[in-house]
Write a protein that binds this DNA or RNA. Sequence first.
DNA 1: ACCGCTATTGACTGCGCAGTCATACGGGTC
DNA 2: GACCCGTATGACTGCGCAGTCAATAGCGGT
Lengths: 350, 350
Amino acid sequence: MPSSQLPDRTRPAGTDVARLAGVSQKTVSRVMNNEPYVREELRERVLRAAQQLGYRPNGAARTLTSGRTGRLGVACLGAGLYGPTSMLVAVERSARLLGYATCVAHTSPEDGHGLVGAVESLLEQGVDGIVLIEATDEGPLKLSTNVPVLTLGRFPGLVAARRIRADEHSNRSGHTATRHLIALGHRQIRHVAGPQRWWAARDRSEGWRTALVEAALPVTEPIEGDWSCASGFAAGSLLARDEAMTAVFAANDDMAIGLIRALTDAGRRVPQEVSVVAMDDLPASRYLRPALTTVARDFDAIAVDGVAALIREIAEPGTAARTVAEREPRLIVRESTAPAPGRDRRPQAD
Amino acid sequence: MPSSQLPDRTRPAGTDVARLAGVSQKTVSRVMNNEPYVREELRERVLRAAQQLGYRPNGAARTLTSGRTGRLGVACLGAGLYGPTSMLVAVERSARLLGYATCVAHTSPEDGHGLVGAVESLLEQGVDGIVLIEATDEGPLKLSTNVPVLTLGRFPGLVAARRIRADEHSNRSGHTATRHLIALGHRQIRHVAGPQRWWAARDRSEGWRTALVEAALPVTEPIEGDWSCASGFAAGSLLARDEAMTAVFAANDDMAIGLIRALTDAGRRVPQEVSVVAMDDLPASRYLRPALTTVARDFDAIAVDGVAALIREIAEPGTAARTVAEREPRLIVRESTAPAPGRDRRPQAD
DNA sequence: ACCGCTATTGACTGCGCAGTCATACGGGTC
DNA sequence: GACCCGTATGACTGCGCAGTCAATAGCGGT
């Protein structure tokens, strides 16, 4: 009885419990897995023995025989950014409620650790399914695994044997945001873009561009930021000198915050002289001054639907929908946008 | 040769590679683990065969024999909050750079899934070490495992066999923030607290209270929020009616943002009439208007030191320091604090 | 020729579990 | 009484790897 002295000195195994309970290891296994065909009396005896020894089934062994790990792997770009992080949290919660644990691998192109590397390390750890959150353009990407993959957001160029798509509406967001500005009468609408390596950033830029073209408005060169407030501030310092411009679509709220600070520092009032619309709806956005007009995604709903489909695909291959959770992004109008100041060239018309 | 047709139909095993390369499974194992005593020629032959079959070592089997998983488990409270999330990201990165994968289990007392449950699920998954980020008061807490545990932040009442502590300075932060207000001449200093179930919140409140007592200033009842902007806004709506008060310490930046909005909505200017200091240093905080004076923690340094110690403890039990990364929190003075408006009762003195 | 050593390789084994199958029992059916 | 069936239990096995140890080869020194 090696484990009767120190609980967990070397973790007790099923056979230890079996011995203590006077049953076979297989019966212990049955009890731990809630299988039928165990007398109530034995079941209780086993549970008591397990409790006494501090027995915890060994996941590795279980995985080895059953082939299932009970784990989802999440590869997530953008360590710390609001969107990816919110999605990650929502995914973890959804998975946990469905009985799955979550392994995270942040990709960081700076560390030379791209999506492939992240996925590779997850597969090596062993996961039953993979969730991909956000992607940069790393060229065509073939995942050589039969593990089902859930992609949250667009992943052009990704090839995977068993793939489920969710939330591919990212280009609508930029379109929605920009149309709001157009509807307010703005004609000179600039764009502070996210890093164009990111598909999400490109899609938002594309939405902006499309909306302008549809409205026959001039398309100017976007200013590319890196999602950070600081880059938004830098962009704002440049944009403040564009006298004709009366509105800006920033690719996320953080950049909008920096942008607005720079604009107002330069004496251009928001929204009276310049309207700003962004994306993300940070928890803080509605409490800022001015409160941000922004486009929100419903991370929770997307994660819940996506993970549910992924886990269904794991449990019963081939039965899950290939595309889920195509939610429309939602425009939230607050204080940072206002009707365009007069249609003439001078933005000071207010 | 079951796996030669479809790569990964049933994942190829080491024996498949061995057969293809004309060596023993053990040699494949040696190659995959970079062990010595393999001729260069064979090594290459094995690698080529592995490549060809798409071979990936099976983590579960490796864990079963070696007893090590290469995985760290992180139990993290406060899904989505800036502090815990930043810490989580930093931990994951540190772990990855040291060759460890990361499993996350968010605890959510609302879901009835406390710290114990989170740790339990991590242990069942199998992890080599556990990282605890933030805690609520769940009473005395005994972790019955010999897996080493790294705690980031204070965890009173936690008992674990092998524990490493990092970043237990949380009470200094509130003290530092409050002393800044005192130094500016403020006498009536209110406090918007975090939820007192959280130790971090209690510690910040304690720091505030201590600083006031040391300066012989009146200690009023804190207003308890829940870390959210909304709760800060609610607190601000109340505090705006306190004419005597000239400064507020908010337990985090988010609440400060809501607080300031409410104060200024009520006509009390920040910082001219009311100074606000908070904690976290959100990326956005320095671009707000007013930019927030706040106290920052160095998540990265704490995570790097903590995880390094944890992994050292895993590799060579007993050799790691029991306490690391005791960094002093850093006060960052910006625009939301100013000298107290005249010492008389009327705050409009500016 | 022999020893002692290092370098190289493979056979064998066991980790802890769940799948498979055999066994045993009690109660109905023909 | 032979048979079948549902229930209940355990013996045995293999998952894929790394640890152990034996076997072999080569080399320099005695």
